[in-house]
Design a protein around this nucleic acid. Structure first.
Lengths: 342, 342
DNA sequence: TTGAAAGCGCTAACAC
DNA sequence: GTGTTAGCGCTTTCAA
């Protein structure tokens, strides 16, 4: 039989209300009684049922996380950031994955709502109307990571993808490259797809170097990076550098180049985006744009908890743009005439 | 105001007991009443509170997962396997990470118990007495992944690390290598550390090739693999192949070799363990031992749910050994005299 | 078949 | 300060 608050009250010779009070420090209790109750709690190793407490307080101390893919470091590192912060607080994480399926996202919002979570963190690419409606129907605090929200009542934590991609491209331009290709993500993905491409395109246009024939598209995977590079090479156009929408694509591109006998970086500079572990591990190590994944998670959960606990209720919670950073490694070098790949 | 079962009962003109019955199909309800109730539920978009249900049924439909590190693919892929299976069932996952801290594990078992989870999956390396005691005190179903349990009432899902390491080593021997080093994990880690080392050692001993000077130790990281390789090279001993306790170490070792001007695989064959993504992406792609991570997760959660739901209560749940597989890629080649590294 | 009522374990008025 | 009591929203006897 599980010991309950009643049992503790009985053993301590007080009412369960008193036990509840010492449990929560909610009202003053005389020192000797508090002590006695504490002792009984201790000796029974009693822990109040969070379920009962949730029902009574209409607060579950559960936070829902919806994420596209748990095994992709781009997402799992965000989760790790969330988890390591919340671990010390009195909340637990209910985590679900969607495999990038938008209907699944909507469904999970519902499920988590039914489970009574106090708030939600959505790590997502983009949504549709039904999705935003589900968010509104959720009625409790929500934070989005990495994507824009439709409702401006929902704070977003992200980086400036446009600016980051611009800087990465400018870095390549500054190295003297004149023919810079891109393996981009899908354009219907507003952040990692569209913004990063626009940053690249606008920077090259400003430098008078933009060539739309040097742009190919793929999903954010190693295989699509590999294929993208093949396509780029098949154009037979002059190209001495490639910017990729993510590190996995960049690695795929490098692997492809390697197999075709093209030397990275001597003949071709490659730049990635994200700075996942593989970037520094690869040979050559990959120059890239670092995203603060863990910090994204940490900031999100911090803000969410504040929203839930209603502190600072007076100030509104706004979206945050976290800083990125250009990381120079071995996959990019100065352009030298003759060394480039036609 | 949140609509409750009472509100539904009122609107449908029945008692809440009846509503509960149609909600759970628990007892026969006349067809017309059922229909009427269903309509009211539908029109209010009513979902029963799982918190209240949990309290009443003493069953939370929550499953706790305790894992060392969320951002390591070796673990996150297990979680992904668990998640994709449980997604379709009426359970949710409460996930916590421990950063390999044993006290944290114990603490999390307690916390998850208080949260009322119906069962627990422990992805862990090894434990101590206090840890096993905490598992026993948990009193509800537990499954362990990848490690041995002290109590034999707790089923374990794992691979045969000894056999896998033996086969990997034998594969290297069969390629004609006579001087095979190992970068192993810590020996106080029973599975990935000790067993993999023993498989390697015993196989080489049988072949009359074991040389303890060719064994170095490290943690399962890229950096330790890199350093391990440095140590191995510093011995100045003849060595034409290296077996590493995990892929990350193997990649570190390859990177080190590369920087020292040693060609993998021409001068040195490298073999990993795990088959995480980076293995096939690396250049050269890494020969390794494939572990069925997702399947480990899937099988664990399947078994756990069965234990929780008490089906097959008559048959006991036993530990399962999942199959591994040697994956041959580009980092290992036949030994050719003269090409090896002294 | 259906309803009334007790109870799951806890919190929070309210009264003393 | 402390106890009594009424919920929180649901399931489940027990009667009818």
């Amino acid at each position: 039989m599980k010991t309950t608050i009643n049992e503790i009250a009985r053993q301590a010779g007080v009412s369960k209300a008193t036990v509840s009070r010492v449990l929560n420090d909610s009202k003053p209790v005389s020192e000797d009684i508090r002590k006695r109750v504490l002792e009984v709690i201790e000796s029974n190793n009693f822990k109040p049922s969070s379920v009962a407490r949730s029902l009574s307080m209409r607060k579950s101390h559960l936070i829902g996380i919806i994420i596209p893919d748990l095994s992709n470091p781009v997402f799992s590192r965000i989760i790790a950031g969330i988890e390591s912060y919340i671990r010390n607080l009195d909340y637990s994480l209910l985590i679900t994955a969607t495999d990038f399926d938008i209907d699944m996202k909507i469904q999970h919002i519902q499920i988590l709502k039914d489970k009574g979570v106090d708030g939600l963190i959505l790590v997502t690419d983009h949504g549709n109307d039904a999705f935003f409606q589900a968010m509104i129907d959720f009625k409790k605090p929500i934070i989005m990571i990495g994507s824009d929200s439709a409702a401006d009542s929902i704070p977003v934590v992200k980086i400036d993808n446009y600016k980051a991609a611009s800087e990465a491209t400018q870095y390549l331009v500054d190295l003297g490259h004149k023919h810079i290709g891109m393996i981009r993500g899908p354009l219907d993905d507003p952040q990692s797809g569209l913004e990063r491409f626009h940053g690249y395109r606008d920077t090259l246009k400003k430098a008078g170097l933009y060539d739309e024939n040097l742009v190919v598209e793929g999903w954010y995977s190693f295989d699509d990076g590999f294929e993208g590079m093949e396509q780029l090479l098949n154009t037979k156009r002059e190209m001495s550098a490639v910017f990729c929408a993510c590190d996995l694509m960049a690695v795929g591109a490098m692997k492809c180049a390697h197999e075709k006998g093209i030397d990275v970086p001597k003949q071709l500079s490659v730049m990635g985006f994200d700075d996942v572990d593989i970037a520094r591990m690869y040979s050559p190590s990959l120059s890239t744009v670092r995203q603060p994944f863990e910090e994204k998670g940490r900031l999100s959960i911090m803000t969410l908890v504040k929203m839930i606990e209603g502190k600072d209720a007076n100030l509104s919670f706004q979206s945050e743009i976290l800083p990125h950073q250009i990381i120079v490694r071995d996959s990019t070098v100065k352009y030298t005439k003759g060394a480039h790949k036609k």
